[in-house]
Amino acid sequence: MAKITFIEHDGTPHCIEVADGTSLMQGAVSHNVPGIEADCGGAMTCGTCLVSIPPEWLEKAGRRSDEEAQMLQFLGCAADNVRLSCQLIASPDLDGLCVHVPESQG
């Protein structure tokens, strides 16, 4: 179980618990976090589940796969700290993580 806070682009925080082994996107969608649209349900084809994470958490969040990196590049999100939340899997390591939902998904 990880406690994750999603912060909307207008600053509204949503603190939710995400079960280990499921994605942050799944957690956000089942708690109706605004801005995580996740059209493709995690198939990594839509790019509507973007979040940015603080640099100090990058290592714990794990590396992006090549596919994810390509998708992000296509979306014009080259910055290291932008991720597809459907590819971030909850574990005790991520407990306390706070992510931002970009304005483009507002």
């Binding site: 649209e37 059209d39 493709c40 349900g41 995690g42 198939a43 084809t45 839509c46």
Partner: peptide, 14 residues
């Protein structure tokens, strides 16, 4: 305009 013309979720239009 978050229409659902392509459906939604794992079956979203390929």
């Amino acid at each position: 305009n978050r229409h659902i013309g392509f459906s939604y979720g794992s079956h979203i239009c390929l």
